[in-house]
Amino acid sequence: MTLQEGLAVSEAVTARKPASRRGARLGFGNWLLPLYAIISFVFLLIPIAYTFAFSFNDSVKSNIVWRGFTFDKWLNVCDQIDVCVAFGNSLIIGISATIVATILGTMIAIALVRYRFPFRSGISLLLFLPMATPEVVLGAGLAAEFLGAGVQKGLGTIIIAHIMFCVSFVVVTVKARVSTLDPALEEAGRDLYGSPNQVFWRITFPLLLPGIIAAALLSFALSFDDFIITNFNAGTTNTFPKYIYISAARGIPAEANVIASAVFLLAIILVLISQISSAMKRKRLAAAGG
């Protein structure tokens, strides 16, 4: 978002807001907060803008000094073959870890909300702890286990590690969705002659799907950006973040900026599309329902 857009947004906010007595007296909520929000967003976006800008830098080896504008790095990303290999590894790891973690986590989430079973609090703790444990500890622990068992570190061990820390996040995300699901809907399905199988695939699953997709996206994002746990369990395998860490000392090639910017743009576009389409859907529903 540019500053102008931000200003326009804040104008919209302040213009339509009737001056409350409290706000008028203090003058706090009326212009200070929107201004603060704009400055905050600018601050949050500075490194992103920098990374994006330097993906167009006509750099030679290190990408620190501005040497002129070029599209070359965007067009020939894989000239730096290491970047592309590392990126490819990150994709493979992200996709595999996401699929497994989403399945395991969704199953646990359904069980947690829908069934009674022994050791409930113990299981909740086991699901909560991985989120409360610092990544270094998770990474070092797994690496110690692999070391003890004599497992060769590589792509496989990274995937195992990523599934582990994604499962809890999937459980939390899907669980929220399961608990908003009205049990009467499934009962209605059974009442209307649906067998347990049919009820699950025709009613439960489609209704949980938004939550499951959100969990999968979160898993992928966590996996794709993870460095600390990966670093302990990667062996010689490179991932995109690990590549950046290793090259940080001697300078990051602009190709890395290209990949990061492309991933960023893709993610932002996906999020914006989903936001706008759901806003439009809300509007349509309101129009039709009213």
């Binding site: 976006l45 994002a221 910017s261 932002i268």
Partner: peptide, 18 residues
């Protein structure tokens, strides 16, 4: 979306940018 936007760019790259 703006708040979570930094998540979409590599943690290491944003730190290097700073």
């Amino acid at each position: 979306v703006l708040v979570i936007a930094p998540f979409f760019i590599s943690f290491l790259l944003r730190t290097l940018a700073w």
